[in-house]
């Protein structure tokens, strides 16, 4: 089974983000999740549902959107020096930190 080029990330509150597989694999967690050889259900469907963890991680749409933005940003600037900072609003800061920890990004 060849890996489809795009995968779907689903936020806890139901937003879906379709991004290139390679981009999503910036996250260690998602990369493992999609690993063909382990053959988990996510790897088969190409659809990662990121559930909220009670009171801890809220992968609500806004956060996941920012995460996806970061994925792309990371992908784009992978091999460059002096990359401009990403614009992150203070409100999202902590949520993003938690998500980053969780997603091993």
């Amino acid at each position: 089974m060849s890996s489809p080029e795009y995968v779907t990330l689903v936020s806890g509150d139901g937003f879906e983000f379709i991004i290139p597989r390679s981009t999503a694999c910036v996250s260690g967690t998602i990369r493992r999740m999609l690993d063909q050889s382990s053959n988990f259900s996510e790897a088969i469907t190409g659809r990662c549902v990121l559930e909220n963890i009670r009171q801890v991680i809220k992968t609500i749409g806004v956060v996941l959107e920012k995460v996806c933005e970061y994925f792309c940003y990371n992908e784009k600037n992978k091999e460059q020096a002096n990359v401009p900072d990403m614009d992150i609003s203070p409100e999202l800061c902590l949520e993003l930190l938690m998500a980053a920890d969780y997603l091993d990004t």
């Binding site: 493992r32 999740m33 988990f40 259900s41 990662c48 559930e51 963890i53």
Partner: peptide
């Protein structure tokens, strides 16, 4: 039988235990 399992779920559970 890994294909019946959701990685995300397992991962989340382990995560919670650690937390």
């Amino acid at each position: 039988n890994a294909s019946t399992l959701s990685f995300e779920e397992l991962y989340r559970q382990a995560y919670r235990i650690v937390l």
